[in-house]
Design a protein around this nucleic acid. Sequence first.
DNA 1: AGCACGCCGACT
DNA 2: GTCGGCGTGCTC
Length: 734
Amino acid sequence: MAKDSRQIESGLFPRKVVPVLLPMPAERAYSYALPDGADAVPGQIVQVPLGPRLVAGVVWDGEADVVNPDKLREITQVFDCPPLNAPMRRFIDWVASYTLSSPGLVARMALRAPAAFDPEPLIEALQLTDQQPERITAARERVLAQAADGLAWTKSGLAHAAGVSASVIDGLREQGVFAPVMLPPQPVVPAPDPDYDPAELEADQLAAAQVLRETVAAGGFGVTLLDGVTGSGKTEVYFEAIAETIRQGKQVLILLPEIALTNAFLDRFHNRFGARPAEWHSELAPRTREKVWRQVTESRVSVVAGARSALFLPFADLGLIIVDEEHDPAYKQEDRVFYNARDMAVVRARLSDIPVVLASATPSIESRVNAAQGRYSHLVLSGRYADAGLPDIELVDLRRHAPARGGFLSPVLIKAMAGTLERGEQSLLFLNRRGYAPLTLCRVCGHRFECPQCSSWLVEHRFRSQLQCHHCGHNEPTPQACPSCGALDHLVACGPGIERIAEEADKHFPDARTIVLSSDMAGGTRRLRIELEAIAKGEADIVIGTQLVAKGHNFPLMTLVGVVDADLGLSNGDPRAAERTYQLLSQVTGRAGRSGRKSHGLIQTFQPHHPVMQAFASGDPHAFYERETDERRMAVLPPFGRLASVIISAATRPEAEAHARGLRAAAPSSAGIMVLGPAEAPLALIRGRHRFRLLVHGARGNDMQGFVKDMLAKGPKQRGSVQVQVDIDPQSFL
DNA sequence: AGCACGCCGACT
DNA sequence: GTCGGCGTGCTC
């Protein structure tokens, strides 16, 4: 290898210098010297001094920057750990450039297991020798019988199995009856068996599974959208793709929205493969986390089920990625590195040249567009599994079937609940709003309770006697008197929350057993799990819940779902409002009908002619999605000559919204102004190659700062925000 | 990201 | 008089 002439000229001992990516937001890798005799290939994980501390970094590709030799410091340790492979390194660079963050911060997500870079210590075990014990006792007899198989046992394992104390084993070991042997550490999970217990698939499942098996067998990159209504058996279908990948000896990553990563899913996997997948999510105990990370890099774990962060695990030999519930907003990360794990999963699959499956009962607009345009293959499962039928959907026009004064449940819904109760079946009332009432005002002076910190309404929580801000978490006790005019007992609650719906249901059905479920429920997730089990066993007649009940949980006895206010969320300015509403209605009504009994969904709405309501009631979302897609294109990409403005907000949403309002006022013709979070960038770019104006807003104090600095040099500056022309082509990797 | 340095408000 | 807030800058 050629010696660095500058270093020779400067009289320094010539050392090999390598670029090292550090877990911080620097634009480039730093240069470090390799100690004599050490070597490190790209991807190698090393320990280096950085300022006053030691950090772990990754040796990166390319030439190291030439730096002042006085500054150059030496790598302190080359970890005995498999290097990140080339596809992983390209993935890190790609994600950094696409998300406008730095490769170091992205690499940091891949290195989130501090103590995993050293090999797992071997475990000391004991094996029987030819040596006989000096004296035989009953306890020793049992130990010898237990260990007679000749296998190595851990001390505690053997003591436990033989029913003796550890000191018995120690004694035998002293006499040389046992010899210590070092064993590799236990795998975090046993190996899954692809042929353990294959499900019996129905015709269209079978066909879809066959296509997926062939896709896996053929290998190479490809995206498949697996699209099937709730209960159509998507999981069983993609399990077959997983089985095929395991047979090939490759690893599988299953991405799930955090909420779906439940024991129910893990058990289902266990039933099919005879072992659980390794889990990866934020709640993992540090020790387990390190074991999983390490064993993933060593290919000792073959299937990982995880939340979005699992996408950055350094798999040694990844063969398939599944993204379940691909439409779920939980895939978006909106701090530090902004990304949508669903999109980045497609990129990772592309760079690793492997298949990826996106599964959902209600696919996102952009995935539908990609499927319709032939970039993704499309597998549709149309029927519900076994004898489970989808509920009959009926729209309840609230203008014609008005609830009683002060109430929110229409007579139609109340009647349906009464019938359900009589048949001994369960009802679910869904309202996506916590607390008792979203707004409280004084009837005397009109004072409205606002949050002192963020000026949104304070939500009354009557059960806790509190007024809470659902944006910033501020809370205060509910006062007796109006703080503005001092009038006593004239505060009035406006609008419904689930607590108020529970009150109303109690009034109508005082003898029914009612359970209220929301994310802020006292008792936390443990209590929640207990309540969910109780519901499944039929220990409740009426369940009243927020978004939380829409996902994942199965209520086998549920035959009626009432959506209290289906319009909620349709008018909040979110470009995904209609799409989200459709998905939510679909998920929540899908809770009913699992038992095979006839079931119903009653959707209360003031806008029965809204396209979402029509599409949902007709059971044919196709036209609706077509229209949504077109509207979205129009909004984001107006005809040539009218430049679209997309504000990719790196600051708070209200700030970005305010800025957008200002822009609209200044230029009414630019109808295309909309505010999207950075993780939504692909949505803005559905059509592929487009040049548009990107307003990076409020970039102060966050990761876009460097980006903005760069762009400032090139683009014009405009009133407090930075306006730049950029090309982002999300399809260029496909 | 962490950590140091540095300059202005309320308190042991 | 100090302790401590977070703004700014630096790390091969």
